[in-house]
Amino acid sequence: MDWQPLWLTFRLATITSLILLVFALPLAYWLAFGKFRGRGIVEAIIGMPLVLPPSVIGFYLLLAFSPSYWFGDFIERVLGLRLVFSFPGLVIASVLYSLPFMVYPIRAGLQSLPASLREASYTLGKSERETFFRILLPNCKPAVLTAFVLTFAHTVGEFGVVLMIGGNIPGVTKVASVAIYNEVEALNYPAANQYALVLFAITFVILLIVYSINNNLLRVRQSS
């Protein structure tokens, strides 16, 4: 069995989740507590990947990344990076595609904390930033963990977007879900089964660990 597609899948999922964590924390905070107009528009945009067919997102990203259009051309000229049919392109697409899976749980976690925790920290002379990192974030660990794992699992399960903008280049863009599709197309069911089974098992174990940890955290909190 060729392990490369699996390795690529988990590398993509890890990088995507880490990048999203960095972006989603301020974004979730801003959505949870920010006072601004047009919040609805921002929320709608972030939530689009939840409802749009992946092929739609893939199609527009394909256009955007293509060197024949200004964005792709710009990136290629300035950074020397080609985004279509490349791993960096896959990462960017995955980040956009999984954005709501990271942002929404963290925002919900932040909003579920009593406002008095923030207010107490402010009256104790602490800035918003310090309050966020020392008070709010440590108290919504289950939400952050859930967000991270959902993002990871969602990226592992990505297929449509990858196919549209990544194609099928071994070692570069051929992730496990695409590999399964290829093997089935070639009527090579045992190989497809191997990939599918590994994905199935690993995903199940990850989710199982996360929910066990979360249940324990919640139990500690409820017993208080």
Binding site: P114, E119, A120, S121, Y122, T123, G125, P138, N139
Partner: peptide
């Protein structure tokens, strides 16, 4: 609020659980 230096005791105490 950081600059006003008031002490605030909240109804729900607002102790930091962690």
């Amino acid at each position: 609020p950081q600059l006003r230096n008031t002490g605030f005791v909240f109804q729900d105490y607002a102790l930091f659980p962690h």
